[in-house]
Nucleic acid binder design. Structure first.
Length: 796
RNA sequence: GCGAGAGUGGCGGAACUGGCAGACGCGCCAGACUAAGGAUCUGGUGACCAAUAUUGGUUGUGUGGGUUCAAGUCCCACCUCCCGCACCA
């Protein structure tokens, strides 16, 4: 028999699968549809990296298994190809970004094919294809029409290195998520999407989603709902007022001062009354100069300036409260102003200590001399007038009612989530289909003028002024107003990369439709996605954005379901052999192409899945690669003889592998097949091999096709039926019982399965070892766990 | 600080509703085949202590307590690590 040479067989079967259209989803099929989705890649210049094969292999196993189980499977792939890296590469090498993308996609396509993934190659989508982004623009126009897209002058996060604005979600620790430059503040007129309007539904409908708990928790946390009240304080000057938001209206009696954020307009409206306006203004300017990064880094020390000459009146006790301006209060949350209750808020407590302000206890239970008492579960109101004696929860209700009655405040729900900054000042993105007309104002491009294509330019370089390179293309920018025909100008910002990926899974259902984003029929057949696997890093970005878009499309009747994904799972990252992030320079990882060349795609696939729990992080190791290659060599060398393999073991393995695939426990599924192989090497029949190959084929599809053919089986292994197990045959006729004495294992005995407790106990007691220990004594107690163990309790 | 995980041999990792801890793989040890083995095959392999050499015992899942006939698994307290959010009132 010839040696196992992956390179001789893998390409051959990849070709056969293609010729036989094995992986094309059927649009007219009677079979039950199953939509398996992986996050489509950004086709970068360096090609497929370690991050890609893991989720793809995992979902490929699932898709291949589902096909064999008789489902009509949609398992597509595409290219999320707009974005900065292609543009930066284009600038550096003076090649058009479209050409860069074309090359990269070709490279990726080849790599993906060489790994044997069963993607439907007839449904590829590319976000930079005008036939695709036509519909991205269309959804945007629908959002404009429904008031969900708007342009507003906003303080935005600006990345000085990328030279464009960032969404809140793209700022991590005050830094640009992509290049780690500290983000700056800029005031800019920006296109925004009103995702906040969907905040509550994005929380509520998590109940409809089968997502990992950590994903649900992270999304909830990100949306950040809080319940509280807005309370209005009268000022002692100009009959002005100051409204604050608080989640603890119950502590109103404990407010000893007020704080407004440096950006709060009050400073200007009562400017003439502020005796130390100069000082306040200096503080405000200093705060404005700080980047988010600096603000968070320097968050330890509380700073601020008291506004001299202006005070507020606490509505519950008419106490006069000083007002401070401090950057620990953010303009972007609540009303940009707070009532400070140092006794029961950590930050207020720190501020009060720094500035020597009074700290009043209004909830008993802590020691406010030492620290703020923030517990809301236990505690009784004190020093709080009519609230005295109430528990916190009751006090909240009482004060809220009182405030509403007096017209001083009302209950309010707030979210941390902010609207989505939906524009970038770069070339390589979807043009925003809007025309600015001096007569009509902002005019959406009529639908029949879509797609609005990107013009060819010579220079893609972004500008420091914050204008997109498109602004320099006068022949493109200047256009007659679609409404009145007057000379007008196009919007020159483009959409962020997240636009195209917010609905791509819909396009896969009907990728060539020129009339609609996808036909109703196709959407009904395939949506919602049955199983979506992707990275945790997208939880508050892509996953949230796409849920929002889908809800909007649901509201306007494009899709029939409020949620796009039924089930979401997340793979763990593969770290380098040294436990750190894989990088080329550290040489601690692997290049998929190299591994395929030396070991073969099947070995790589197996290794990626065997190396650890799919949903947990794991470490790359060459050693595992060797073990998996050895396993496949043994499979290749497997020969039948006259005997058959143990039937129980065979059925147990079918059960184990089938169930483990469902739970993404690929590592233990492979372990079970390894055990079965060891047994089969001692003796098996052709029919055993037939079953074994079908079990293994989703994991190592090429070698299984080869052996399937070698064995003279009909058709293709990947189109064979998934093996069934007989539950009756998964259990042995006899079982080995553990025999314990006083809880310690002392012997094992073999008894018939399902024998009664007396029989089991008697067998245990009869064991030689147990006899020796018992020395004729009778156990004072006997515990029998059927088919598992007997525990004999002896005295003394 | 808040939220969600994790801690098991030399290593990667198994272990269902509490029921024989360490499956499977790597490595290592011994043997076989060899001119040779960094190839392949067979057997062994948590630690420690005994020994009639077949086994017997003790101990062992981050730490300290607890519940139970029985705990990696449940309860309480704590330590460490990773991830997400973080002055969100």
């Amino acid at each position: 028999m010839e040696r196992y040479e992956p390179k001789n067989i893998e390409q051959k079967w990849q070709q056969k699968w293609l010729e036989n259209k094995c992986f094309q989803a059927g649009d007219a099929s009677e079979k039950e549809p199953f939509y398996a989705l992986v996050e489509f890649p950004y086709p970068s210049g360096v090609g497929l990296h370690i991050g890609h094969p893991r989720p793809y292999t995992g979902m490929d196993v699932l898709a291949r298994t589902r096909r064999m189980q008789g489902y009509n499977v949609l398992f597509p792939i595409g290219w999320d190809a707009f974005g900065l890296p292609a543009e930066n590469y284009a600038i550096k090498n003076n090649i058009h970004p479209a050409e860069v993308v074309r090359r990269n996609v070709e490279h990726f396509r080849g790599q993906i094919r060489r790994l044997g993934f069963s993607f439907d190659d007839t449904r590829e989508v590319n976000t930079t294809d005008p036939d695709y982004y036509k519909w991205t623009q269309w959804v945007f126009l629908k959002m404009v029409e429904h008031g969900l897209a708007y342009k507003a002058n906003m303080p935005v996060n600006w990345c000085p290195s990328c030279k464009c604005v960032l969404a809140n979600e793209e700022v991590v620790g005050g830094q640009c998520e992509r290049c780690e430059s500290p983000a700056e503040h800029r005031d800019k007129s920006q296109w925004m999407l009103r995702i906040t309007q969907y905040a509550q539904r994005l929380i509520d409908d998590l109940d409809l989603c089968d997502f990992p708990s950590r994903v649900i928790a992270q999304q909830r946390n990100w949306i950040g709902r809080s319940e509280g009240a807005e309370v209005t304080f009268q000022l002692t000057v100009d009959s002005g007022e100051l409204t604050v938001y608080t989640t603890r209206p119950d502590t109103l009696f404990g407010a000893t001062y007020m704080v407004i954020s440096p950006e709060h307009p009050l400073i200007e409206t009562v400017k003439s009354k502020i005796k130390n306006y100069g000082e306040a203004d200096d503080y405000r300017r200093a705060a404005a100069r700080k980047s988010d990064f600096e603000r968070t880094e320097l968050a330890k020390e509380k700073t601020g300036v008291r506004l001299d000459g202006v005070t507020a009146i606490n509505p519950v006790n008419d106490q006069e409260l000083p007002i401070y301006v401090s950057d620990y209060v953010l303009m972007s949350y609540g009303t940009g102003a707070i009532m400070a209750v140092p006794g029961h808020d950590i930050r207020d407590w720190e501020f009060a200590k720094t500035f020597g302000l009074p700290i009043v206890e209004v909830v008993a239970g802590g020691n406010i001399e030492k620290e703020a008492y923030t517990d809301t579960e236990t505690g009784t109101m004190v020093n709080s007038g009519f609230l005295n004696g109430l528990e916190v929860a009751d006090a909240k209700k009482a004060i809220t009612g009182w405030l509403a009655e007096k017209g001083l405040g009302e209950p309010k729900v707030r979210y941390k989530l902010r609207d989505w900054v939906f524009a970038r000042q770069r070339y390589w993105g979807e043009p925003i289909p809007i025309v600015h007309c001096p007569v009509c104002g902002m005019v959406p491009l009529p639908e029949d003028q879509l797609p609005l294509k990107l013009p060819d330019v010579q220079n893609y370089k972004p500008t420091d002024t914050g204008e997109s390179p498109l602004a320099a293309i006068t022949e493109w920018v200047n256009t007659p107003c679609p409404q009145c025909g007057a000379p007008a100008k196009r919007e020159t910002d483009t959409m962020p990369q997240w636009a195209g990926s917010s609905w791509y899974f819909l396009r896969y259902t009907d990728p060539c439709n020129g009339q609609e984003l996808a036909s109703k029929d196709a959407l009904r057949r395939w949506m919602p996605v049955d199983w979506y696997n992707g990275g945790m890093e997208h939880t508050t970005l892509h996953l949230l954005y796409s849920r929002f878009w889908h809800k909007f499309l649901f509201d306007i009747g494009v899709v029939d379901h409020p949620e796009p994904y039924k089930k979401r799972t997340s793979h763990g990252f593969i770290l380098g052999s040294d436990g750190t992030k894989i990088s080329k320079t550290k040489n601690n990882g692997m290049d998929p192409d190299d591994v395929v060349k030396t070991y073969g795609a099947d070995t790589l696939r197996l290794t990626i899945l065997f190396i650890g729990d799919f949903e947990k992080g794991c470490q790359w190791s060459e050693q595992t690669l060797k073990g998996c290659r050895r396993f496949l060599e043994r499979v290749h060398a497997l020969a039948c003889n006259g005997t058959t393999v143990d039937e129980v073991k065979l059925h147990q393995t079918i059960k184990k592998v089938t169930e483990d695939i469902e739970g993404l426990k690929f590592n233990t599924a492979i372990a079970a097949m390894m055990s079965l192989l060891s047994l089969m090497e001692k003796g098996c029949a052709k029919s055993d091999v037939n079953i074994f190959l079908r079990l293994l084929s989703p994991f190592a599809p090429h070698i299984c096709e080869e052996l399937w053919e070698r064995q003279g089986e009909k058709g293709l292994c990947c189109q064979a039926e998934w093996p069934q197990y007989d539950p009756a045959k998964t259990v042995e006729e006899s079982v080995e019982l553990a025999v314990q004495v006083n809880g310690k294992l002392r012997a094992t005995v073999t008894v018939p399965r399902g024998c009664d407790n007396q029989t089991a106990a008697a067998a245990a007691l009869a064991a030689e070892r147990i006899q020796a220990i018992a020395e004729g004594r009778e156990p004072v107690k006997t515990i029998v766990v059927p088919d598992k163990l007997v525990n004999l309790i002896f005295k003394g």
